[in-house]
Amino acid sequence: MKSFLKIMLFCILVLIGFVGYANFGIPQVKPAPPPTEEKLDLGNMTMDQFIALGEKVFNGKGTCTLCHNNVGKRAPMLDGAGEEAVANSAPLRLKDPRYKGKATTPEEYIRESMKEPSAFVVATFGSDGDTKSPMPNVTTGSIGMSEAEVDAVIAFLQNKAGSEVTVKIPVGAPPSAEGGAAAPAAPAKTPEEVIAKFGCGACHKIGKEEGALGPDLTHIGKSRNEAYLRKGILDPDADIAKNCPGAPCSPGMMPADLGTKMTGSELEMLVQYLVKSK
């Protein structure tokens, strides 16, 4: 018993030595607290600025207007007037027997429709009897909107429709993984980056992207030459393809302003990439 106590005393003393040295022998560096998830300016943002951010995302990073425009009739209008505005039609859709989502308020409905587009597909705009939406989840993939950006877009849509803006400005959430929609996009360095930057994959099957609205571009180099492809990007309505999957192709579907948005090198990179896609 005596040796047992001696051993215990020895072990405890050793432990006290260790813990004492760790506490008093070496300086206590207090590691920096975890970063609050980059507030950027959200904390100081007024609702007007938040709505403006939403508009920017809606027209830019979100690539929403690629389809939600009144030219191609590929997707329902969202920011129109009256019933056309999604913020106004949402209450009706929530009551629609075809609705299978979980939302209970218009705000939730819009958010849901951005993340799970198939929860409700507006008649004539979907496949498989309007149960599947061609729209991607906007928080993933090349669009990759953050929660705050989704909220900003909802605020923008509600504001545009003239209904009450129910969204709260989120605190402590990053507006985006890449530093916000406000940051001007850097020129793309590879054709894949060009495709991601301009959201080609939202409509076209190209590279790893699997859009199903516009013509399949994976083997476009076989049938089209360089000049045709370049013109096709700069002036998409000049020659309308006939082989769109789903409904027939129509003028105005593809944005006509790519020529002004792309840099020269981006355009050339993309054209060369397409020519080689055989």
Binding site: S133, P136, T140, E147, K208, E209, E210, G211, A212
Partner: peptide, 25 residues
């Protein structure tokens, strides 16, 4: 169920297997 509703989302190869949910936030 949620992520099954996004058949066209196909940016990265792996995401074809959309039955797996993302890490929760």
């Amino acid at each position: 169920v949620k992520s099954e509703g996004t058949p066209t989302e196909s940016v990265k190869e792996g995401e074809k297997k959309a039955e797996y949910p993302p890490a929760p936030k």
